[in-house]
């Protein structure tokens, strides 16, 4: 690897300050960033590790009942600490990568990276969660901005993610077994005011909401309700693991499975 500095601040304020340095980048759990550095696909001069900031870790319940997860909370900690409050979210976290990856990788890192095949973006968009940063609150619908792009500004740190807890929810992941990312993953969440369906792994624009399915499922929360819908292959990812038509087909299949599992 090329040479760079690492700073390891103990507080969010120090981290935000360190990130003002030239060519500085935040380091979450590093499970994507470190392989990216090895490949020199990113070459920051300074990494600012967020792993030593206690105030950014852990799961708590807000006054409004929302599940609040610190930005530096590992997937494994979400599995342990969120299971009683938001089981579908904990279940999603329990299938990210492998156990060793889950012990390091963080929710804030995953969201800031916005890999088009990552699991967490679907839960955040599917739950209508709010991303809290050191500077502002960003609603999920305005956070994801295409493949590997988000609304985050330079040096902005995800400190917390707030998930309103749905009546029912489920995530179905069709695993790409070599990478353990989602070939297609669908998060379905039923709230009192409607159903949200968020799809990851499929679109060249990254995670998206399948609005036709949301309307159909809001009227009738059953797999039959989406039976007549078709997903267009236009703009879907095509690679050696699956064609765009295959991914489009999987979107509907996985949505149906998620509805059945949630009901």
């Amino acid at each position: 690897m090329y040479a760079f500095e690492i700073e390891r601040p103990g507080t969010l304020a120090d981290a935000v300050n360190a990130l003002k340095g030239e060519d500085a980048q935040a380091l979450g759990g590093g499970q994507t960033l470190i392989p990216t550095l090895k490949a020199r696909l990113a070459m920051p001069a300074t990494l600012v590790s967020l792993s030593g900031i206690g105030e950014m870790k852990g799961v708590c319940i807000g006054d409004d009942g929302a599940v609040c997860i610190g930005g530096a909370t590992t997937h494994a900690a979400v599995v342990r600490e969120a299971a009683a409050h938001y089981p579908a979210l904990a279940d999603l976290a329990s299938h990210i990568g492998d156990p060793a990856v889950r012990n390091r990788g963080t929710i804030g890192g995953s969201l800031a990276n916005n890999d088009p095949s990552a699991c967490y973006p679907s839960a955040v968009l599917g739950s209508g969660a709010t991303i809290i940063t050191n500077a502002r609150d960003i609603v999920a619908d305005e956070f994801f901005d295409g493949m590997f792009a988000t609304a985050l500004d330079e040096g902005e740190v995800i400190t917390e993610v707030r998930f309103p807890v749905p009546e029912k929810a489920n995530y179905q992941k069709f695993v790409q077994p070599a990478s353990r990312f989602a070939l297609v993953g669908v998060f379905v969440a039923k709230y009192s005011d409607g159903v949200r369906v968020a799809v990851t792994g499929a679109s060249e624009d990254g995670v998206f909401r399948w609005s036709e399915a949301e309307e159909a499922l809001s009227r009738d929360f059953s797999a039959d309700a989406i039976g007549g819908l078709e997903v267009s292959a236009d703009g879907m990812i095509a690679d050696l693991h699956g064609s765009s038509a295959y991914r489009a087909h999987l979107v509907k299949v996985m949505t149906g499975r998620a509805v059945v599992a949630a009901a």
């Binding site: 690492i6 590093g30 499970q31 470190i34 392989p35 156990p99 060793a100 390091r104």
Partner: peptide, 8 residues
């Protein structure tokens, strides 16, 4: 358990 090749 962590992967020691993916941690500084």
């Amino acid at each position: 358990a962590v992967k020691a090749c993916t941690m500084f």
